[in-house]
Nucleic acid binder design. Structure first.
Lengths: 214, 214
DNA sequence: GTCTATAAGTAGATAGAC
DNA sequence: GTCTATCTACTTATAGAC
């Protein structure tokens, strides 16, 4: 543990680590205290319980994600830009993976977080719409009016459930491979709408993907 | 409750109802017994606990899903066929929705069910491959070799996480509307690969979707 | 097959000493 | 700020009577 870290911060970072690595449902507030060599009473002095810890962790995630989403507006015009942009989003989600893995259950347990999470998803939707607009101009992307919202839903769904998909699949990947694969899949959703540029774009995408693997 | 139903059957159907409607994590074995006006001791006589109940429920789901998946092989050639086929799959999943809503957590808790669930997904993958083959011949569907497995993944993902997506979204739909919407989205994933037939297919799809709504 | 009673274990939470 | 001690509430599980 880095010196200068307050007890509060130590509780938060150890909780995040335990939830991500051992599974949030399996860890009680007392487990967190034990992992830190701290008494439960002390932990309860800093946080009213596991609920308060999870809310505090969400605060941090929410803020960082907002910075990412807002920082990109109007700046995404190429496939390369998109690759990097989505990669950054997925890395942020990966750091908060316990939340995404048990999403439905957690949103049921914390209705207040559900409201905030939905607001975050709405921001993400706007950001994706924005970058699709950018691509439509720069790369002659052409999505049928009726299909546009469906495609956006599919992209959001991919960015939301990629970790659950991996958990369900038999052979779980290492994190960076998984992120690369997911970026590829997200962009692949719009490739067929690129008309004559599709094949070329697909090749660019495959090159980028293969490069990331090495 | 229908007469002639054994206590075992009553426990299973009441458990399924409670898990689906009230959430599986919130219901203990004692809650199920109480809901049936039965003593916990009696429930424990029939099932060793909640784990045994969930395994028995999975047995039923697994068997029904296999029948559906195997019954369709080689019989799907049109968009209409696909619509009906996917609709039936989603209805079956809907009956077992508590499981799909807490998928990651449940597969973590029951590694034996994880193995069986993955086998079921593999069967589903084969069935989807099969029906895409059918469409490729009948409707000149043309998916780039590299994208084919990605598209199949996206379809499977849609059919696996549609209930979680709905739970996360702000405005949850009524079950039949949600199923219609999901069928539309699943088929929409292959529409752009239909070349000249795309627009026509999309219109057929929209008509079918609008008809389902009324 | 079904009931009552109860044991055993654990998470969540707080009071009060240091 | 941190610790020890403790209490409540609840789930799981079983023994033994009917």
């Amino acid at each position: 543990m880095a010196k200068g870290q307050s007890t509060r911060e130590r509780i938060l970072s150890e909780s995040l680590r335990l939830f991500n690595e051992e599974g949030e449902p399996e860890q009680s507030a007392v487990d967190v205290a034990n992992a830190l060599g701290m008494s439960p009473g002390n932990l309860y002095y800093h946080f009213k319980g596991k609920d308060a810890i999870i809310r505090a962790l969400f605060d941090g995630f929410e803020e960082e994600m907002r910075v990412i989403l807002r920082g990109s507006r109007g700046r995404i015009t190429s496939i390369e830009d998109n690759w990097v942009y989505i990669y950054i989003i997925l890395e942020e989600i990966y750091d908060f993976r316990f939340f995404y893995r048990g999403l439905s259950a957690l949103l049921d347990r914390y209705p207040d977080l559900a409201v905030r999470f939905r607001a975050l998803l709405a921001e993400m939707r706007d950001a994706i719409d924005d970058s699709l607009d950018g691509l439509e101009q720069a790369e002659a992307l052409d999505i049928h009016k009726r299909l546009r919202p469906v495609v956006v839903d599919q992209i959001i769904s991919t960015l939301t459930f990629w970790l659950s998909r991996d958990a369900v699949s038999a052979n779980s990947l290492e994190s960076s491979s998984l992120i690369d694969k997911t970026v590829f899949e997200a962009i692949a959703l719009v490739v067929p709408y690129m008309g004559d540029a599709s094949v070329e774009t697909l090749n660019t995408l495959i090159d980028r993907y293969e490069a990331a693997k090495t």
